[in-house]
Nucleic acid binder design. Structure first.
Lengths: 153, 153
DNA sequence: CCGTTAAACCGTATATTTCGCGAAAAAAGG
DNA sequence: CCTTTTTTCGCGAAATATACGGTTTAACGG
């Protein structure tokens, strides 16, 4: 089951670059009939290769000009500290990404806010009030060198 | 020019969650005729609110199971150190994101590789050979708590 | 080696969607 | 108030997607 051939990889690559390419165009680019492309697309979605489609919005145009990374350390006094913190993170809309990492701290948080004043209140009212948070270190982004590249497929 | 009303925000929000929603469905959801939706969509793209569309691919399904963050410090001996490093970063397909930050180091790099062996060679052959790199600190991701949330619009 | 079964492939026909065009409405600017 | 520009929106032609069903291919167990 769920094997993936060279054509499938090509499809995934093209779809990453243009998620709204038409089925017909896609079929023509990889050299299979349009209806076969329909079948493959449905299969790739059903088997979880394609998680979904999304529009890439310019954050600056919608008032989210400041990107910030935050290193978070927890005080692991309770056994469910991780679980509680995770749940809080998923409910904070400012937090776009959060990963548990190995190394000098516990979580790396990526957040978008309008400006430093906004970040200040986010830090005080939201992040520092999350369960178990012991220490944070903030790294404001000065320049987005590579904002979001496609996966190398 | 380039004002954005409540309907536009709704459109952007819906498109972030489903980038392949049909124009007709979108129009119905926000309560305007389909042809007006066409016009708005074209305007939002032309004015740079919508940067493009993309398929979200599951990295694990395509052999990119390991997510890594790397803090990079440069030795700023030459004035164009930043420029040279930036260019190198943009040519490395393993690097999905790279941001210049304020704080204890210069760049935060997000990369995806298949496993630790792959990361070891990426670090030695690619990252450490980039111009101006003085020091790196690696943080492998153990758990992706919040992989990629939509912008709060 | 053969038969069975399940999956993938693909052409046709139909349903859905998109988009250009032009009229109507609204907004902007004297 | 009138003119000019922009936005809105209905219609219909053209493009697109997809359900259906027959054909082919692959996998597996005897």
């Amino acid at each position: 089951m769920s094997e993936i051939d060279r054509i499938d990889r090509r499809i995934l690559d093209l779809l990453q670059r243009d998620g709204r390419i038409t089925n017909a165009e896609l079929a023509q680019r990889v050299g299979i009939p349009a209806t076969s492309m329909s079948d493959r697309l449905k299969r790739l979605q059903k088997h979880g290769y394609i998680l979904g489609f999304t529009a890439r919005i310019d954050p600056h145009r919608v008032g989210l000009g400041l990107l910030v990374f935050v290193e978070v350390s927890l005080d692991k006094t309770t056994p469910d500290a991780f679980e509680k913190f995770s749940r809080a993170v998923r409910h904070a809309p400012e937090i776009l990404e959060c990963h548990m990492v190995a190394g000098g701290f516990d979580y790396l948080v990526k957040a978008r806010v309008t400006d430093m004043a906004h970040y200040r209140s986010f830090l005080g009212d939201v992040l520092l009030n999350m369960p178990g948070v012991a220490e944070t270190r903030t790294f404001p982004v000065m320049e987005e060198v590579k904002p979001d590249a496609p996966l190398p497929i």
